[in-house]
Simulated assay, not measured.
Amino acid sequence: MESRNYTRVSEFFLLGLSDEAELQPLLFGLFLSMYMVTFIGNLLIILVILTDSHLHTPMYFFLSNLSFADICFTSTTVPKMLLNIQIQSKAITYEGCLGQMYFFMLFGLLDNFLLTVMAYDRFVAICHPLHYTVIMNPKFCGLLLLVCWLLAFLDSLLHDLIVWQLSFCAELNIPHFFCELNQVVQLACSDTFLVDLVMYLATVVLVIIPPTGIFYSYSKIVSSILRISSASGKYKAFSTCGSHLSVVSLFYGTSFGVYLSSAITQNSRASAIASVMYTVVTPMLNPFIYSLRNKDIKQAVKKFFN
């Protein structure tokens, strides 16, 4: 049997979105602009909700946490990419890669769970309006947030610990602009059966169940709205969840689209470019969706600046 020398690597190399030198300044400017818009937009949503007492409700409590998760989600990947472009380096340390992978999964899953909880909040508000304040009390909202953090923390930690046990050989190039779990696992020389099993189970439990919960909540919401007799009542009921539905469609539409296209094309560089949609573009657009489609947020923003 052939023996292979497995060693603990010191660094990986992120190949980024393009190898062409003349495109690097353009990529730097583009991603810096998108990152600044994402950071400022989501930070503004958080500050507006914190300072306006009219927005101290469960829906905006979860929205402020979603904005915080979006800031952190983007901050795990884009700053390192910008730094590498600036210093003309593709290297990331082994520990830095695992850390980036951990926090990317943590805040990505947190986004996933928060969107599910927000769908449940809208379900209670529309389908059980008389019991809304009793069900969605501050203690229960805090408990839901704690469960979201705990599930995201445990799943991310489990994946990171399993990847930590893998051994890597000579090929250390990651055809992506950040340490994406699948790309890192594919570079391993040791057996990846356990990692693949955990990834499969996590996909079934943590990626399929939340969208199913959201779909169930909105099926009940639509059913309740259709029973409202007046057109104005239907519009008012639907407008309270329109922003959330837009964000859900954008988040799951882009993320599922990227993974389906990567499975079909098997082109790592094309997959990396497509992943910009859910890693950078979606967190950037969320504040605009909520501020443009939500009357309470628009009024609070005007009040905040005045």
Rank of each mutant, 00 (worst) to 15 (best):
I46S: 00
Y216H: 03
L114M: 05
I221W: 11
I135C: 07
L26M: 13
M1D: 14
S33D: 04
L197W: 09
A270E: 13
G233I: 14
F39I: 04
S268L: 15
K302A: 15
K236E: 10
V9E: 06
I228P: 01
W164C: 15
S255G: 02
G253E: 03
L50V: 11
E171L: 02
D160V: 12
Q183M: 14
Q183I: 02
S246K: 12
L32D: 08
M59S: 14
P211Y: 01
K90P: 05
V48F: 10
K139Y: 03
L98G: 05
G108P: 01
F73I: 04
G99W: 09
M101N: 03
V9Y: 01
T279Y: 10
M284A: 15
P210C: 14
T254A: 15
H176Q: 14
V37W: 09
H128K: 12
I209V: 07
D121N: 12
L144A: 11
N5M: 08
L144P: 08
L109V: 14
L114C: 07
M284F: 13
D296I: 05
V184Y: 06
T192P: 00
N173D: 15
S89D: 02
L115W: 01
T57R: 04
T203A: 07
C127I: 00
S275Q: 02
L150H: 10
L143I: 11
I273Y: 08
P210D: 04
L32I: 12
D196V: 10
S255K: 05
T254S: 15
L30M: 12
D196S: 08
E180S: 12
F12P: 02
S67K: 01
P210W: 03
M101H: 00
Y259E: 14
T116A: 14
L285C: 01
A69H: 00
L157R: 06
I297S: 00
S33K: 03
L26H: 09
G213D: 09
L50G: 09
T93D: 05
I214C: 07
A270R: 09
V134Y: 05
L17R: 06
A237E: 02
E171H: 03
L144W: 08
E20Q: 03
R227P: 06
S239G: 06
P25V: 09
Y132I: 00
S249I: 11
E20C: 03
S275M: 02
Y132D: 03
T38K: 00
L150K: 05
T74D: 02
T77G: 02
A170G: 14
V9N: 03
I40A: 04
G213S: 10
F251E: 05
V184Q: 02
G257I: 07
L161I: 08
I228V: 05
E20K: 10
W149P: 01
F104N: 01
S3Y: 13
V222I: 15
P175Q: 06
V9D: 01
A202P: 04
F256S: 13
K302W: 14
R293G: 13
F168W: 05
K80D: 14
K302D: 15
F153T: 06
C72V: 07
G257N: 12
A263M: 09
V147Y: 07
F62W: 07
S224R: 11
G257A: 09
V301P: 08
L157I: 09
I214R: 02
N65A: 10
Y216I: 15
